[in-house]
Write a protein that binds this DNA or RNA. Sequence first.
RNA 1: GCUCCCAUCGUCUAGUGGUCUAGGACGCCGCCCUCUCACGGCGGAAACAGGGGUUCGACUCCCCUUGGGAGUACCA
Length: 462
Amino acid sequence: MTIRTRFAPSPTGMLHIGGARTALFSWLYARHHGGEFVLRIEDTDRQRSTDEATQVILDGLQWLGLDWDGEPVFQASRQGEHVRAAEQLMDAGHAYRCYCTREELDAMREEQRARGEKPKYDGRCRHRSQQSEDAPFVVRFRSPDTGETVVRDMVLGDVEFNNAELDDLIILRSDGSPTYNLAVVVDDAAMQITHVVRGSDHLNNTPRQIQLYQALGLTPPVFAHIPLIHGPDGAKMSKRHGAVAITEYRQAGYLPQAVVNYLARLGWSHGDDEVFSVQQLIELFDLAQVGKTAARFDQQKLDWLNAHYLHHSEPAELVDEVARLLGVDTSNGPDLAAVIGSLQERSKNIVDLAEGARFFYIAPCAYVEKAVKKNFKDDTWPLLDAFVAAAEALPEWSPVSIHALISKVCESRGVNMGKLAQPIRILISGGPVSPPIDATLALLGRDETLNRIRDGRTNMAV
RNA sequence: GCUCCCAUCGUCUAGUGGUCUAGGACGCCGCCCUCUCACGGCGGAAACAGGGGUUCGACUCCCCUUGGGAGUACCA
């Protein structure tokens, strides 16, 4: 049997890191087994679903490289199937109309809570006599009162639920639209999903869904409830707790393979290994190796992995993204790939890289005050003048010759390289940080270098 | 409150009864390298939540406590 997994986000909020990991695990499992991975947008809540959220989901998955098979299925378009299933359930006596009003239900729950009971529907409409035809109603699933339902979970093992704990859930709203539990079951069955990989926040729904499968005469898929990702404070990922749309990571300069690698290691491991290519992930990933404990989101480790991938990238691969985030015209300056090559090992993300590259294309108009104070002494300008004079006469402008030149000037004056390198660095970049001075000057070019040093004298005098 | 899940360094984790004086990684501290910032190299501090069992022997199995999390909607 072909393995088929799905990712079924609801477009009511942004796709964040937790949802992305669920998608990743689901995708990896399918790809590992040579199966299929499909996408279903759960938009049955028409009020709260938005096109923007759908777009973020699609963009996010694409950016991460999680490709899906076939076209995405929009759940709302399958309402006919859902209603048919509900009717089938009613015909078989597994579902019934409930005419309770919201006020009635609220009052009931309030009483139960006051008595210290678990709030749940008491089934009062199971045998309620005929109502007038035009009274609004919902359809409820008739849940068994006795026995137990066991969820066989690939991550958690067997989890038993007492059926008495489960109340009669609504499967069709009063407007005739299906609710989540009915729609997932009908659609997962119709789409022939073999393995349902989802967050463990869905574990409590699972016994009800299993009952629905049984009542509809369907075979339940295999379930795998993966632990949730918590924010840095240990609470559930939410908008208030560091949950940002996955697409924001791109804007913040993260590489998709770093995010994928980080996410994979949150809950899954393979011995002591830390760095995995997507290919290796597909080869090695197994739901059986997924742990049961919730993980906290650790930005620093993501940063480390991102830096790792950044340092091991070919500059050419980075050019487009750096140019996009840099947002300045680079056509009249040094080759961007070469600039990236000089910068990548000292950057931890693309934003860093782009900022570090900026001065190669735009001359500084101000200098970091603290750095000036620290590096400009009485003997600094004479030293710079000596450097400029020698630089003008230098036959070849290359890292090696520049290095030799700086070193020679410093030696003749009996000072170490920092005495000259730092002032030059400040004058050409505006601050005390840049790639090695020889490489930087070579990239910038002789004319631009000397112009910036000369301009520096006037700028600083002001 | 009730139901369900979880519990190894600060964080992510290895560990599936003896090989554990518990391993790796991030972060942190120190040293080296050095023209700045980084990279890199070397070294260091740092954990089995507590209590009962089971066993010749528990980080590993069972129970309780404690702690954390999720659910408890005409959301998904």
